[in-house]
Amino acid sequence: MIRIGTFTGPSARPRRSPLRRVLTLGLPTAWGATAWGATAITYKLACPLAQQNGLGARIASSAVFFVVGTGLVFHVRRTLLRELRRARTVAGVAQSALLRPPPPRVAGLRVAAAQLSADPDAAIGGDLYEAVGTEHGVRVVMGDARGHGLAAVGTAAAVLGSFREVVHDGTDLADVLRRLERALARHLAGRARDGTAGEEFVTVLLLEIGADGELRALNCGHPWPHRITDTGVEPLARTDPLPPLGLLPLPEKLPVEHHGHLLPGEALLLHTDGAEDARDPRGRFFPFHATVTEATAPRPLCPQVILGRILTALLHHTQGVPTDDVALLMLSSDSAARGAGPATSAASQRGATDHDGAALDQVPT
């Protein structure tokens, strides 16, 4: 649930009590009901036909009252639908401001995003993502707040708002992650004072893609993204991530992991666990890896088309009723300027190393 604070100043609107909001909503309906009721009473008292007891007079009176009742019902329905459309418009604007669509290109990378909320009344849920071009390279965040739907929106907003504020100032990913942890701690402390806090945490994946395509990452409990190459689809890494933010304090040292380079023609697909954990009515998991492999087989890669194929397959698998929020973010490199030069082979570019400098075993799945 998003809470909007009360602002002061010449343009501020005073906060109305729930009773006043109900009265404001019901006033147009009451005026309409009064008008229709006055029409029925006038007919009953002033029309000579209404005073007669014959069969024809009774039929005519029944028809008049049927028309009056029908008109009243349609008036109330029209008024409520108008207020519902207005409320959904306001909610849609607020939700799109929080989880705004990324630009089609960020510093030479093609970017596309898609998301589904498990709450049918919400356009977004607890998933968060953002891709920003900075002087350090393209910095990306993908996260998932505990829970789903509107209950997780506030926590996701705290982390995403902090990322947008510090992404340009953080000297490295470790600095950005520590600032996100402090922002989440402040948010949870405020929830505790309000008596609305529970066991809350957020999984966070931070990526940094340098101008030469070098990949750097920090992962706090989030699924690793998939690297899409000419030879297939494989996880970016297989190392165990750090604990989610808010669950345990971050360790004193946060070594950033290096995972080779993102070469021209390659792409990264980031996702939340709602995509991998989606089940059909028989309890079978969604074949995420196989679906991604099939969706990315046609070349050249088009991020928007690929995400559409994956979401279509996921909705078909769950019969249109996902039980958890789902977010997908795809970054595709189609600029030769992002490569490291023709003298460097793709295999050497993708020779990922962990934070100790040891080579990671990247066996294709």
Score class of each variant (00 low, 15 high):
G161W: 05
P102H: 06
R139H: 13
H168G: 10
H271F: 15
R21N: 12
A114R: 14
T229L: 02
A57D: 14
E234Q: 11
G147C: 06
Q95F: 01
G260W: 09
A359L: 13
T70D: 06
P103G: 00
D354F: 09
K44C: 06
H258T: 14
R279V: 06
P10Y: 10
G283E: 08
G339R: 06
A217V: 14
S345C: 01
A123C: 02
A50K: 03
F74N: 09
V111R: 00
L72P: 00
T155R: 06
L128W: 10
P241D: 08
G283A: 08
A57M: 04
G32S: 10
L98W: 05
R178A: 09
T293F: 08
R338V: 03
D172H: 13
G54T: 14
A33L: 15
R216Y: 07
Q319Y: 13
T318Q: 09
D356N: 05
L250D: 07
L263V: 15
T229V: 05
D119C: 12
R58H: 12
A290R: 08
R178N: 09
L314Q: 10
P281L: 06
D194W: 08
A107R: 08
V73T: 12
A60C: 08
H259P: 01
G149Q: 10
G92Y: 00
G260L: 11
H226M: 09
L301P: 02
L311S: 13
T196W: 01
A38N: 14
R15C: 09
R299N: 06
A113N: 05
I228N: 02
A97I: 05
A359F: 05
L215P: 06
P255I: 05
L205P: 03
P101S: 13
H168I: 00
G213L: 09
G92N: 11
D280W: 02
A113R: 08
L45A: 07
L218D: 03
G161N: 06
